[in-house]
Nucleic acid binder design. Structure first.
Lengths: 202, 202, 202, 202
DNA sequence: CGCTAACCGAGACGGTACGTCCAGTCTTCAG
DNA sequence: CTGAAGACTGGACGTACCGTCTCGGTTAGCG
């Protein structure tokens, strides 16, 4: 993360052992039970070695997730927008499941009070997904599936929002039919003619 | 929380001192820096007294928030649905601001890995707001501002979702115009005619 | 102990329950594990009631021992001095056995850093035994079994000393033959003619 | 005590600071007031460091005493047995004085209900003194000052016993003349001819 | 024979110390 | 002369008892 002292001499085998140990321990006790001490012991590595390359346990987990789930730079494009959006959302639902042992959720929880981690999380895991998502919508605008003036930021909020809403409030991820309903509503909102003023006054 | 050993003999003055100390300390160092030890010291109370009545620091903070922001059982009803929704959302935005020292956010973060706390949080802070929200929408259905078959759960997800989305990803709360835009989109989605099937297939 | 607030109204049943609970708990976990809280709970009595009548757990245990092992004011007198001494010493050995769960040993340990308890212990348990012991020796002087000028304080030290020596150093109580040997040596010391000065110089 | 995890890396400066703090605090408040917390604070050391190397506060105090008062392996030998015994006993009297703040007495009190500590105490403080004592008596046998068949264990009991007797019962250590009298009696007992049977029957 | 003072149980309270855990830094030693 | 092993300070954790302190609810004995 951030500035490596001297990446040239970094031991790849230690790095792998640390990430592997992190994955195991995360699976065993969940993110909450995870400690740097335990990672070091399990990986057969000194704590110092971990602190040398990562600023916090969150950063280690972040790197783990980053490796595991790298995003295709190119969005899926089946021709059907709803289908592709469903695929994109489903991937995120996968990351946020199961509620009590998902490393991603642990990471998000930690990032809530660690701005540095939050920044890394956003840059490395979130932004790529957002970019992919917007790219897909942009293509939909090009093909006329969405109006050219559709607000993509609003679309982002409306589509991903429910997932985080439900994560934060432990409400359970939307089931497939609810997910389809959400997508349908959002597409309708983006497509429907602006009813002259509605809530735009102010 | 839940079943007090013998609430009758509970010292109200200790309880008040604890909540006051919690509020102060939360303001000073944020939820993350808050410790039971510090609360006890500041409140002039023994740790045992805290543990006797609350299972965790999260529970104390929850009670603090619960007292501070009790919800009117009756939703606002100015006649204009968008206005009332804006008011409801703004209240939650207030709870989730500022990002790095809001006790509510700390609480949500903690609840992510503490199911007991999550349950209390949901029951005591969240559900009342959801109920109020749905009640307002129900009235809107009665007055014809919303179709009778509008899916209120979807409305909930679409309106509150963006707030938690932005909280979780440290994206900053929506500014007023963005908020209005969100509300307008959602109302459009709920009101617009279902375009024959769109994404309902499956 | 000492000044009861108003002994008249004291509940005998509580007193008995407390002593009984103390005995049980002492047997279960040893003196070290004994706590006022546990006594109160087991006896179905409030802690206040214990503190009202006894200044410390040591005092409770002392009263327990005092009741259990009251000394005959009159020493045994079989005619044979060694036999009677053996009986007196054996009684004390009984109190100091078994090494790790004897309430008496616990009490002595506590008295080592509690002068008040030490005083009570001496007055109520020890002095009566010393008096009895000396009384027996005095009779032996009268019958000529011991010289009239035998130093009874030295006899006390030499005969009881080894028991406390062994208790303090966890060396195990003397077995019967060793005990007899000790008695024989001491009687010889008291009876033998003073070898003109020997160690009396100074 | 016993098996250090890896004594090689142990910080000698911490060890010294801990023992020094222990000595100070013992002097200030007596063994009873001594706590691990206070030692750690005074020594500028974390509690963990104390618990890493010693199992209990007793063990720390034991090490302190062990360093302070190491015994000459060779007993004093002035030629006069009584003189040398008086010296040996006086050293122990020094350890057991003053009654209410002697660390040694605190240690003995603790050992009464802590078998592990008792064992260490015996092995590290007591046994060496016993060995020295017996060695001196053995020499006395060689020079004919004591009969070859004198029972050295009995001598040990009779000479050291009174000290522990008086410690346990808070009777005050013997004054010099009483001490001389004790020694004289014991030497007489060991030297006097066995009066045909006396208490040897049984 | 009813008042009132002390008892009683229950257990909450402010405290002190316990022994454990983990964070993050610093030191030692082997390769 | 690097890096693993791990000892170190620091500080919060949650627990156990301490001895004190209300609470109501009996009793007991005096007036």
């Amino acid at each position: 993360m951030s500035k490596a002292p001297n990446a040239a001499r970094r031991s790849e085998s230690s790095r792998r052992a640390i990430l592997a140990a992190t994955e195991e321990l995360c699976g065993e006790g969940g993110y909450g039970r995870l400690t740097i001490e335990a990672i070091a012991t399990r990986a057969g590595v000194s704590k110092k070695t971990i602190y040398r390359w990562w600023p916090s346990k969150g950063a280690v987990v972040l790197e783990l997730l980053d490796e595991a789930a790298s995003v295709a730079a190119n969005p899926p494009d089946s021709g059907d927008l709803a289908t592709d959006l469903r695929a994109l959302l489903t991937e995120v639902i996968g990351l946020l499941t199961p509620a009590h042992s998902s490393p991603a959720i642990g990471l998000i929880g930690e990032a809530l009070h660690d701005p540095d981690l939050a920044r890394d999380l956003r840059e490395r895991l979130i932004q790529p997904r957002i970019a992919t998502f917007k790219e897909r919508l942009r293509r939909a605008q090009e093909t006329g599936q969405l109006p050219a003036d559709a607000d993509l930021d609003v679309a982002l909020d409306l589509l991903y929002g429910p997932l985080y809403h439900r994560m934060a409030l432990h409400l359970g991820m939307p089931d497939p039919s609810h997910l389809d309903s959400l997508i349908a509503h959002v597409l309708r909102a983006l497509t429907a003619p602006h009813p002259a003023g509605a809530a735009e006054q102010r």
